[in-house]
Amino acid sequence: MIRPAEILLVEDSPGDIRLTMEALKGSRITNNLHIVTDGVEAIDFLMKREKYVDAPTPDLILLDLNLPKKSGFEVLSEIKESIQLRVIPVVVLTTSQSERDILLSYEMHVNCFVSKPVEFDAFFNVIRTIEDFWFTIVKLPKQ
């Protein structure tokens, strides 16, 4: 039996959280969407600390850059510096289109950088495509 895909969404905007949930709702892949709303919580989740002791290791991380407490860049850098965590693919999902942000993300070994489309349909498509790509096309390491 195939276990459901574990996805961690690091996002502080409730509107975007809900939209992502809606987009994933009708998806072909069974998934568990875990949500944290700031950078500190994200690291706690990944390190299985505090209330996240029993949290699963995610198969994919969707990371916003603009986050309270700890920025998306800080979270990204901690993930990619950790031997255990850096195997997890990280998709930066942000409204930013700045060349600087894009370059910096890749310099910090992001797996891919995606701009949140303004159009609703496009946003749905992007979420579906990300899911599709990382869970049906890409081979990920067995945990």
Binding site: S13, G15, D16, L19, K116, V118, D121
Partner: peptide
């Protein structure tokens, strides 16, 4: 302004 507008637009579409 784009951010809140995206929310309005997206949820209207939903």
């Amino acid at each position: 302004l784009q951010e809140p507008l995206r929310m309005v637009g997206s949820y209207m579409q939903l």
